[in-house]
Simulated assay, not measured.
Amino acid sequence: MSAIELDGLARRYGDRTALADVTLTLEEGATLIVFGPNGAGKSTLLRVLATLLRPSAGHARIFGSDVRTEGWRVRGRIGFLGHDALLYGDLTAAENLSYQARLHGLRDARERIAQLLEAVGLTARADDRVHTYSRGMVQRLAACRAVLHDPPVLLLDEPRANLDPAAAELLEPLLGRASGRTRVVTSHDPAGGLAEGDVALGLRAGRPVLLRPAADVSAAEIGELYR
């Protein structure tokens, strides 16, 4: 079954084109790894899929639901981890996740929240306000927020940013291939990204210049996107 379908997807800001002519299909359980220099359109693509930006043209569907006209349905099926953690600094970790649980209609999420905080090593800081956290701790908590409602699709914008190797390993069961979820992941790491992706998409100036099975793409080809 197709989890994500993009057809001529585009996003413009006035006269500037941030994303143009992106067409692809991603099967359920597969990982799309997205490469490109800063400003290439990677984050814009994720934000359109997350219903945070409206497409200027074309269509994007997640499990058949259009992001433009059925955003409410799409939001229940995705977990988004972007550069903004989407957390409240004056709330504790537990309070942030409890609030998110209510937004997703989860009636009693206390056990789920406790399990997630333990999984990312934040149990001892569960009742501390998030503004006291380090950037890496915020990233770990944001990962909990993204998977709290057990979404079938993850949209991950450089998910290992601000993480040391030990913290990145903690998040692997939640965000990595082992999670079994369909994933769209942006990366600046050619070798590492290709190793975890099924399909590679290369963007330059908002336009796709490479779209092939990741196994058929070399790290050197990805490196050319940045020259």
Rank of each mutant, 00 (worst) to 15 (best):
G89R: 07
I33G: 05
G76H: 14
Y99H: 11
P159R: 07
A166E: 10
Y13H: 15
L174A: 07
R135T: 07
S179D: 08
S65A: 15
L86C: 13
G29C: 06
L163W: 11
A126V: 03
D127R: 09
A93C: 06
E5Q: 11
D7T: 14
R73Q: 13
M137V: 09
E221Q: 09
G8M: 11
S179H: 03
Y99G: 03
L211E: 05
S218M: 04
R212S: 09
Y13R: 14
G82K: 13
P159L: 14
G180P: 01
V74W: 00
A40V: 06
D15P: 08
Q100S: 07
R135W: 00
I113E: 06
R47G: 09
G89K: 11
L26H: 01
T17M: 08
T44Y: 14
L87W: 12
R227W: 02
L156M: 11
D66V: 00
R125T: 13
A220K: 11
Y99E: 09
L52F: 15
Y13M: 14
P173N: 06
L6C: 13
N162E: 10
L116E: 02
G8C: 04
R129E: 15
R77W: 00
H59K: 12
A18C: 07
A18S: 12
M137I: 06
A205C: 12
L194Q: 02
R140L: 10
G197P: 00
G89Y: 07
P55T: 07
A220T: 11
A215R: 14
A114Y: 02
L103V: 14
G36M: 10
A205I: 07
L122D: 03
I78Q: 03
A40K: 12
I113K: 01
V74D: 00
E111D: 09
R183I: 08
Q115F: 03
D15K: 13
F80T: 01
L86H: 15
